[in-house]
Amino acid sequence: MKTYSAKELIACRVAGEMRDGDVVNLGIGLPTLVSNYLPEGINITLQSENGFVGLAPVGSEVDPDLVNAGGKPAGIFPGGATFDSFMSFALIRGGHVDVTVLGGLQVDQNGNLANWMIPGKMVPGMGGAMDLVAGAKKVIVAMEHTAKDGAAKILEKCSLPLTGKGVVSLIVTELAVIKVTSEGLQLEEISPYTTVEEVVAKTEAKLIIPDHVGAMKGLEQLEQLEK
């Protein structure tokens, strides 16, 4: 069996969470890959917080007036719509966006998310992230399981300044899918390249481990795309 990269595994698994017809906001970086792995028959509408729905890959001609939320050239599908920042965030905050997928620096067992600053090191600003986590119906954190230095990112309690309190629904990493429940973090699935023991060792937060932990979904999709 081919070994897929962490990014491929994460993006493909997150894509499997989408329902046909969902309005989705994908954060900058890894989350933007999700739209490459949508299962057949699942069509979603992407919302771009700078002011439109129907976000598409950039076409043959670059329009300087049309960029994505990262400021990079973008396209817009037929049937899309442009609007101002007030409407954009009314959509986000008002529960009109079904799913948002964001990266994370830390997530904790109460569903708190920290992804916007590291005091003394990086203060880029929260942009639209705090509104997205406050308003989207489902918040999925898509991130690598541990930091580059091996430090745990799924914690008992976030140490970095929060982006949102109790906002995360699901954590998808290259090792596992973890659901945030009122009782704590529940291990739902693990990748075929790991074991429950490894996931537990690389997670600081206490995990609720059911009798049966499923295999991470999405691999068949990756293999199919490969063909």
């Binding site: 917080e49 101002d84 007030f86 406050a134």
Partner: peptide
């Protein structure tokens, strides 16, 4: 937060004394 910024400006221009947000 960007949505709060938009709403604070709108409030300033729409005769509102502020806005209430969960953000």
């Amino acid at each position: 937060p960007q949505g709060t910024l938009a709403e604070r400006i709108r409030a300033g221009g729409a005769g509102l004394g502020g806005i209430l947000t969960p953000t």
